[in-house]
Computed example of a mutant assay.
Amino acid sequence: MISWVVINRLLFFFRSRLILCTYYGIKGVRVPTLNQLQKQIAKLESQANQIKKKEAGAVIARIKEAIAVYGLTAADLGLSAKGPKAAASKVGRKTAAKKGRKTKAGKIKFKDDNGNVWTGHGRRPQWFLDAIAAGKTPEQLAT
C-alpha cells in the first residue's frame, strides 16, 4: 500500500502546478484529474506490493538465520501460545507503569441515588451540579 506521504507529495505537486499556471496565466498546462491521480496511485500501489513480495523472501531468510544463530524461541520474541497481541499488551502495561501513569480508575468518592458516580477528580459532572442546585450537600453525596 502506498503511503500517505507519497500521496500528499503528489497532490502538493499538482496543486502547486495548477496555482502557478493560474497565477501567471499559463495556458495549455495539463493538470491531471482525480481519476487520473487515482489510477497512478493504484499503479504505484501494485508496484509497491510487487517489490514487497520480492523482498519478503530475503527478509524471512535473514530472520530464520538469526533465530538459528542466536537460538531464539517464540517466547524470546514475545510470541506466546496466546499470540503476539498478549505479549505486546504485557509490554505496554509495564511501560505505562514505568512512566508513572495510572493503570486503574480512582476510588469513587461521590454517588447519587441513580447510580451516577464521580471520583472527585476533574470537572464536576452535571448530575453532581444538579444535586447541589437541588439542595444536597457534597457530604450527603459522599460514599
Rank of each mutant, 00 (worst) to 15 (best):
V69H: 07
G120M: 06
I41R: 04
V117F: 03
N8T: 14
K109S: 10
R101D: 07
I41C: 00
R93M: 13
T22A: 14
Y23V: 14
K53H: 06
R101W: 12
I63R: 08
K136H: 10
L129V: 09
D130I: 05
A88P: 00
K107A: 15
R30V: 03
K39E: 11
L77N: 02
T137G: 04
A68M: 06
A134T: 04
V69A: 11
R93D: 13
K107S: 07
T143K: 13
L44P: 03
D130Q: 10
P32A: 01
A86R: 07
I51F: 02
V5G: 14
T73H: 09
T22W: 01
A68L: 05
A133N: 12
N116I: 05
T33G: 06
T143A: 11
I63T: 09
G115C: 07
E45Y: 02
S16G: 03
Y23K: 08
N8H: 07
L10T: 06
K107T: 09
D76V: 02
G92D: 03
E65L: 07
V117H: 00
E55Q: 14
Y70M: 08
D76L: 05
A74M: 07
K90L: 14
Q126C: 00
N114E: 15
E65W: 05
I63A: 15
Q126D: 15
A88Y: 03
A87Q: 03
A75Q: 05
L37G: 06
A66L: 15
V29C: 06
V5L: 12
R93A: 09
K98G: 04
D112V: 08
V69S: 08
N35P: 03
F110A: 05
K43V: 13
A42M: 07
K27Q: 09
V117T: 15
P138K: 15
L37M: 11
F12Y: 09
G135T: 04
P138Y: 04
G122R: 02
K85I: 02
R101T: 00
V5M: 12
I41S: 01
P84T: 05
R124W: 01
G83V: 02
G57M: 06
Q126E: 14
P32M: 00
M1K: 08
S80Y: 01
K27T: 08
R9G: 08
A58I: 13
A105D: 11
R123T: 08
G71A: 11
Q38P: 00
K98F: 06
A75W: 00
F110L: 13
L129A: 07
T22N: 12
I26W: 15
A131R: 15
E55T: 14
Y70F: 15
L141I: 14
G57N: 12
